[in-house]
């Protein structure tokens, strides 16, 4: 594997793909997209890195212990944000009245929804990477 064209193109493309995925996640409440779409794009970027530079390099950049923690942490942040509403006297995942809602259309609006999107995005991105590594790993 000594393909200079592939390496150069992937090195040029990867930052763009990662920034696009983060954009999709952070604008999940005002434009189409959201946690799952952006997380899938981030996961695709990580998988592209792993396919090009080999599984050892991708495991060095994103080791299994980190992806394990990110996966569990995403779910825990989601549940924790949901429990805030429960503690402050509402139902699970209460939004209005607990979080400041802001004006519709602004990037800082929607109460807790951007926080949930970030949690879901981290969870989905690391899950895609884990799935790929688990399928490719040797016995």
């Amino acid at each position: 594997m000594n393909d200079r064209l592939l390496y150069t193109i992937v090195k040029l493309m990867l930052p763009v793909i990662v920034v696009y995925g983060i954009f999709i996640i952070l604008h999940g409440h005002v434009t189409p997209g959201g946690g799952f779409s952006g997380g899938a794009i981030l996961g695709a970027a990580l998988i592209l890195y792993g396919l090009t530079f080999g599984q050892d390099a991708s495991l060095k950049l994103f080791p299994e212990s980190v992806s394990k923690r990110l996966e569990s942490g995403g779910v825990l942040v989601y549940i924790g944000i949901g429990l805030i509403g429960l503690v402050l006297g509402g139902a699970f995942l209460t939004n209005a009245g607990v979080f400041p809602l802001g004006d519709p259309g602004n990037i800082l609006s929607g109460g807790m929804i951007p926080l949930l999107m970030i949690a879901i995005g981290i969870k989905v991105g690391s899950t895609m990477m884990t799935l790929f590594n688990a399928l490719l790993e040797d016995e």
Binding site: I24, P32, G33, G34, S37, A40, G43, A44, I47
Partner: peptide
């Protein structure tokens, strides 16, 4: 939103 997800998931992952 469905188109974006399908393009990322169906054609990518």
């Amino acid at each position: 939103d469905v188109a974006l997800t399908e393009a990322a998931v169906g054609a990518g992952i």
